[in-house]
Design a protein around this nucleic acid. Structure first.
Length: 461
RNA sequence: GCCGUGGUAGUAUAGCCUGGCUUAGUAUGCGGGCCUGUCAAGCCCGUGACCCGGGUUCAAAUCCCGGCCACGGCGCCA
């Protein structure tokens, strides 16, 4: 038996149509959505109905439809409902229009809500995440994910326009690829396998394969027990890799184009809402991104804040934050590329600067922790959002670098082999999507920027 | 992983320091009632809580230990 609803949802109109379409006034219309507010005023019930587009007020009068009125006065907040009625103009209605209802059905009744969805900041984030589907009923929260989707879209657009091909690489790996970050071990039938912590090696495969310019937007996994507002164990990495570059500035150009594009388009589209909902949101697009060698940055931090860094040391969290503050205050810069990181903290495939200045087999001999490399980080509003650089494409040098880092070449044999067959000079970068979203919106915690975050404790929902 | 702080109704908090003065306070939600122009509606009535385990004590929300969880700092990282 098929149950036929008394209201046909195929003729459903959206709230925004009811509010704006001049043709619809005085017409009989169907709407459906969630009952956001229910106000019972005696023989009169006001329901604010919310759908994906907007909200429209429904008025249910006892003298018009006793049946609908009875349902309406007992309706619970956030129930899914559908209504049929006549659209009227009324100065007292929000948006100056309301639907005078003569038929109402409850599609799905809602129990009392376990969290306050009207003001999300009143409930602790952990509780909101337990009920994320209810948390998202709030416009302000849904906005985060609309912006996230757009940022991923802008990344895709930016790279396609530059001739990059989107690829999809494995996330289940037979060998832990990069070292550095901890990897998750999983059981793959009867064998041990690993979750990808980065698409790095596969992006390079994409370049060498002849695609030349590739990108990927996909999940990566980091088995690190961080308890910070900027780490997740699973996040979305936006990566690209490009061949036939003359130096790593060309790589930074791509990341720079993306960040400028993203901030401009997001602010153009959502600037008003950002200002209204997120007091710390970025309201000015990123215009200029200076490129400063790490040594210079450390010199500034020493001079301005008295921070000391031994040679071959990366910045610490405080240093990143202070640098962001300083550049913003002094020059109005929202973002900065820190370049020429020393070999010590960088992975084995990183291109040492001496190899680009004086190519040859000798260039990668005797790399020391403080040897500068053609690599960079992008700090956006005081937080590292991107890491990138030029990669070593010389087979002999690569072997030396693998050895220098103490990586077992056998687990990487397929990768190292590639460099015997015409690997062009190349480089690329990886950007954390959630970090970009966090920094644009000025969110306090990265978990807010992930639909269903995973951290060392949380595995549900 | 180390360090710090915290865990009280559905939600958010007060009480904890100085154990008994508490029938655990407040706001909001929720249930019931009144109301034909509400718009975070209003008014009246009602409902509901000390994270788990152990210990100290005549007596534990309160003090001690362990666990779990949360938030943050650091290392590290996108």
């Amino acid at each position: 038996m098929v149950e036929v609803l008394p209201i046909d949802l195929r003729s459903r109109r959206t709230a925004i149509e009811l509010l704006t379409d001049p043709e619809l006034v005085e017409k009989e219309l169907v709407v459906a959505g969630w009952a956001e507010h229910i106000r019972v005023i005696g023989r009169l019930v006001f329901i604010v109905l919310r759908d994906r587009t907007s909200r429209i007020q429904l008025v249910v009068r006892k003298n018009l439809s006793q049946e609908a009125w009875k349902l309406a006065r007992k309706l619970s907040v956030e129930s899914a409902i559908a209504a049929k009625g006549v659209l009227k103009e009324n100065d007292e209605a929000p948006g100056r229009r309301e639907l005078v209802v003569h038929e109402l059905i409850i599609l799905s009744d809602a129990e009392p809500l376990p969290i306050d969805i009207r003001e999300p900041e009143k409930t602790i984030l952990a509780k909101r995440l337990d009920y994320r589907y209810l948390d998202l009923r709030n416009d302000k929260i849904r906005l985060i994910f609309k912006i996230q989707a757009d940022i991923a879209g802008i990344y895709r657009e930016t790279l396609r326009d530059k001739g990059f091909t989107e690829i999809f690489t494995p996330k289940i790996l037979g060998a832990a690829s990069e070292g550095g970050a901890e990897v998750f071990t999983i059981i793959y039938f009867k064998r041990e396998a690993f979750l990808a912590q980065s698409p790095q090696l596969y992006k390079q495969l994409g370049v060498i394969s002849g695609l030349e310019r590739v990108f990927e937007i996909g999940p990566v996994f980091r088995a690190e027990q961080h308890h910070t507002p900027r780490h997740l164990t699973e996040y979305t990495s936006m990566d690209y890799e490009m061949g036939f570059i003359s130096d790593f500035n060309q790589v930074m150009d791509v990341t720079e184009a993306f960040l400028k594009n993203a901030t401009k388009k997001i602010i153009d589209k959502y600037g008003d809402l950002l200002g209204k909902y997120y007091p710390d949101a970025l309201l000015e697009p990123v215009k200029e991104i200076p490129r400063m060698p790490l040594k210079e940055v450390q010199e500034i931090l020493r001079r301005e804040y008295g921070k000391e860094y031994p040679p071959g040391e990366d910045l610490d969290t405080e240093g990143e934050r202070l640098l962001g503050e300083f550049l913003e205050k002094e020059y109005g810069y929202k973002a900065v590329f820190i370049t020429k990181y020393p070999w010590g903290p960088r992975p084995f495939y990183t291109m040492p600067c001496i190899c680009t200045e004086n190519p040859g087999e000798e260039c990668c001999r005797g790399l020391k922790p403080d040897t500068p490399t053609c690599s960079f980080d992008l700090i956006f509003r005081g937080l590292e959002v991107t890491t990138g650089g030029q990669r070593q494409h010389n087979y002999e040098c690569l072997l030396k670098q693998v050895e220098n880092k103490g990586v077992n070449p056998e687990t990487l044999s397929w990768y190292i082999e590639m460099f015997k067959y015409g690997a062009p000079p190349h480089g690329g970068a990886g950007t954390g999507l959630e970090r970009v979203v966090k920094q644009i919106l000025g969110l306090k915690n990265i978990r807010e920027a992930r639909l269903l975050p995973r951290d060392p404790e949380r595995l549900t929902p």
